[in-house]
Design a binder for these strands. Structure first.
Length: 814
RNA sequence: GCCGAAGUGGCGGAAUGGCAGACGCGGCGGUCUCAAACACCGCUAGGCUAAAACCUGUGUGGGUUCGAAUCCCACCUUCGGCACCA
């Protein structure tokens, strides 16, 4: 009696068995080599969507593959559960954010289980649990004690929609990456992490295998520029300290005809002359009102105002006017530039508009520099108008100018980064409270480690005020100063959730430790992550922060090695069937629960991987599902349908069957090793077709057939874990298929005895000939010359040249 | 504007210097069936053909090579990143 393949009968059964037997638990005492497989944990929004499946299911396939290779695999899962949506739900629907979050976690945990992924649920971490955020707070104090965390008053990115400050990384094109609101600038006191201290090291990726794309994005974000700082004496009697600029082109110093300060530059108020005061004030106010978007637009015409003050060019002593303009950014370099209109297009536009002098510091082979320029030219030939430097080639100029500046105390070589310190304080409730107490006498005091965690209070009023709702909780805020004992107030800002996710992979190694974030034994056992998978959208946020965090932890002596994740693979974005991003408004959302209900988890997993290369993403094709279902059925019937098997004498049919099996092992292993799941599946499809054909031509050799089927099941196990487990038990395999050894190919068996040689004439395919593998050129030539059709093509012409690629082709050039 | 990736049948895609279109969807034809399919078998780039042979064909134009989807140059298009960062 043949059973049908019914996923709904077998999937829940095996999932229950796996959990009962703790099949996927990673054991700290297991002596086998460890493999730490990690996939980015989700935010508990309340519903697992196809994007989660697309990211996680293939990560599970890779983890299962490693397990079958014999590694002691840790593949944990958890929830990144602090964050704004919970609080917004609280405001909108009057639900406790904690209750909302934990309901969602329960639901999503169930949805994740449906996937049949091999998570070790005993290691689950939930970042909003006090047992977790106690250590997030502890980390913050460590950073503080190591002078990597500090408070400062500065211009912050304020999202009016989210009612909180954002890190620079969370601002995309002047808008909030979450809510899309236009970000405003506000002077605020905030907490920062000194990520810039690691800027140089973050540019290096030694010993790790990360996608070029991510490395490029991080390098762009860090934005290292080499140049020099030059000091200009200001021609205002009260100003003793020189005005310092950063430039990447110190060699153009003789072309610096004016200076420009950012409107927020601290010197502006002190150098502006009474005559210019009104204009300057008006301009500063107007700039403050402009959004970041307006300010950064390159299309906009340059604006600016003269301060009335002058400074002296330290090289030629020229007295140059000091202007302010919003094209100079207060937060980059020194917030002041020397303007060289002849060689910088921005300065050129500004000079043209305000009729400021333009003096070239270089000549140029195609440009007559004695005539007025029509545009700036960044690079030229030899220095001109440059005093003792005149005549020097551009390639040598920077070095000589900087050396002179250093020798004469008017400047020095310098490096500037685009990267700025990471703003980590948020004016919201649903996050880890910053563990600090503000005392009128003692100043800001860290909460003692023994008082951690600083627990979030319950029963809070959620009114968006621009301050954390915590400020309204007088009982919670009022506290004794840990230093002097007098009445003090708690810090009411909470931590950016990216802080929680910067170290979650460490906690998985020792998730229940009440004494420490993790034991050093656990760290030695499991760190670093061997394989990390997740979306590229985190390139300059989570993926940058977690590297910084790790390096800081290393310097505190808490972890070893320079990088947290050895190998990173990014999946692409799965799109709706219409090729657009899935969205409710488009009506193209594919709900995973529905797909599982309809086809089973195994089929849905396979279809997601089969639609195309994982790293490219692309449209999901629900109609194509029938192909996957057919294939899974075909695999099923390889086991379930009767087969005429016998011990056969050595025959080509048997050799061919075994060849197919061993070739499949070789090819498929290479595909799965490199995350090419679509072609991995096609290899398995080809193998099942070959098995079917052999069976239908039957009888088949018993051993060769059993080997073929066993291999089929083993190779299918990572993809369709439930189906494979069921079939494995049906052929009498011991529990579980998922801890069996990955099949190894016998190279000799995989080898073809005969090959079809392609015959080309002048590079065009004209014929084929069957030859024993490994034939020499002479043997091939003899076989080819015997082909009657070939003589027609040659039509008596003499071969001029013959190219022979053994076992592949023979090309005759006439 | 700068940097990067990509462009292949009706569709998703395969092939990274050696037979273009693997594998799958869809379509067409057939088998089993009273009938059907999430079953099974066959065909399926275009042109010219009774069929083959043959010719054309991987965004466009050129080049390198015995041989190019693959390498090089220029251009077009799409996507991603950066962008008044001195």
């Amino acid at each position: 009696m043949t059973d049908r393949y019914e996923p709904h009968a077998i999937e829940p059964k095996w999932r229950a068995r796996w959990e009962e037997t703790k099949l996927y638990a990673a054991n700290d005492d297991d002596p086998r080599p460890k493999w730490y497989a990690l996939t980015m944990f989700p935010y508990p929004s309340g519903d697992l969507h196809t994007g989660h499946w697309y990211a996680i299911a293939p990560s599970d396939v890779a983890a299962r593959y490693r397990r079958m290779l014999g590694y002691n695999v840790m593949f944990p899962m958890g929830f990144d559960s602090f964050g704004l949506p919970a609080e917004n739900a609280a405001i909108k629907r009057n639900i406790d954010p904690k209750a909302w979050t934990y309901q969602n976690i329960d639901r999503m945990r169930g949805q994740l289980r449906l996937m049949g992924a091999s998570f070790d649920w005993d290691r689950e971490v939930v970042t909003s649990d006090p047992s977790y955020y106690k250590w997030t707070q502890w980390w913050f104090l460590q950073f503080y004690k190591n002078k990597l965390a500090y408070q400062a008053e500065s211009l912050a990115n304020w999202c009016p929609g989210c009612q909180t400050v954002l890190a620079n990384e969370q601002v995309l094109d002047g808008r909030c990456e979450r809510s899309d609101d236009v970000v405003e600038r506000r002077m605020m006191r905030q907490w920062f992490f000194k990520i810039t201290a690691y800027a140089d090291e973050l540019l290096r990726y030694d010993g790790i295998e990360w996608p070029e794309r991510i490395k490029t994005m991080q390098r762009n974000w860090i934005g290292r520029s080499e140049g020099a700082q030059l000091n200009f004496r200001v021609d205002v009697p009260a100003i003793e300290v020189p005005l310092t600029v950063f430039t990447t082109r110190p060699d153009t110093i003789y072309g610096a005809t004016f200076m420009v300060l950012a409107p927020e530059h601290p010197l502006v108020g002190r150098i502006t002359t009474p005559a210019q005061q009104a204009d300057v004030d008006a301009y500063v106010v107007a700039t403050g009102r402009a959004t970041e978007i307006d300010r950064l637009s390159t299309e906009r015409e340059k604006t600016g105002v003269f301060t009335g003050a002058f400074a002296f060019n330290p090289f030629n002593g020229e007295r140059v006017p000091i202007w302010i303009a919003d094209y100079v950014l207060a937060t980059y370099g020194t917030g002041a530039v020397m303007a060289v209109p002849a060689h910088d297009q921005r300065d050129f536009e500004f000079a043209t508009k305000f009729r400021l002098p333009i003096v070239p510091a270089y000549d140029h082979p195609q440009i007559d520099v004695s005539k007025p320029l029509v545009a700036a030219f960044p690079h030229g030939g030899r220095m001109i108008n440059s005093g003792e430097f005149t005549g020097i080639q551009e390639s040598e100029a920077v070095g000589k100018v900087v050396a002179y500046a250093e020798a004469n105390g008017i400047g020095r070589g310098a490096v500037t980064y685009r990267l700025r310190d990471w703003s980590v304080s948020r004016q919201r409730f649903w996050g880890a409270p910053l563990p600090f107490i503000h005392c009128a006498k003692c100043g800001t005091q860290p909460v003692p480690d023994s008082d951690l965690p600083v627990v979030l209070p319950e029963n809070v009023d959620f009114v968006p005020t621009g301050q954390s709702p915590l400020t309204l909780l007088e009982d919670w805020v009022r506290v004794a100063c840990p230093n002097c004992g007098s009445e003090a107030r708690r810090e009411t800002d909470t931590l950016d959730t990216f802080m929680c996710s910067s170290w979650y992979q460490m906690r998985y190694a020792d998730p229940k430790n009440p004494e420490r974030p993790f034991s050093s034994e656990a760290a030695k056992k499991w760190f670093p992550v061997d394989q990390y998978t997740g979306g590229a959208e985190h390139a300059v946020m989570h993926l940058l922060y977690t590297r910084f965090f790790w390096k800081a932890a290393r310097d505190m002596g808490l972890v070893e090695g320079d990088e947290p994740m050895k190998r990173l693979v990014n999946q692409g974005v799965i799109l709706g069937p219409d090729g657009n991003r899935m969205s409710k408004s488009r009506g193209n959302v594919v709900a995973p629960d529905d797909q599982v209900e309809k086809w089973g988890a195994d089929a849905f997993r396979c279809q997601l991987m089969f639609v195309g290369p994982w790293d490219q993403g692309g449209p999901y094709n629900p109609t194509g599902m029938s192909g996957i279902v057919r294939w899974l059925n075909r695999v099923w019937y390889l086991v379930e349908e009767p087969v005429r098997r016998a011990k056969l004498p050595d025959a080509e049919e048997t050799r061919s069957l075994r060849r197919t099996t061993h070739k499949t092992i070789l090819a498929a292993t290479d595909e799965i090793e490199n995350f090419r799941f679509n072609t991995y599946i096609s290899r398995l499809m080809e193998h099942s077709t070959a098995l079917q054909k052999a069976r239908d031509a039957g009888p088949v050799d018993r051993e060769a057939w059993d080997e073929g089927v066993r291999t089929m099941i083993l190779l299918t196990a990572p993809l369709a874990p439930h189906l494979a487990e069921e079939l494995w038990s049906r052929i009498g395999g011991s529990y579980s298929v998922h801890i069996q050894t990955w099949p190894t190919a016998d190279g000799a068996l995989a080898h073809d005895a005969e090959v079809e040689l392609v015959i080309q004439v002048n590079g065009k395919v004209r014929d084929h000939v069957l030859l024993p593998a490994g034939s020499s050129e002479a043997e091939a030539w003899a076989a080819v010359m015997a082909l009657p059709r070939l003589q027609e093509y040659l039509s008596g012409r003499e071969p001029r040249r013959v190219i022979y690629v053994p076992d592949k082709l023979l090309n005759i050039v006439v």
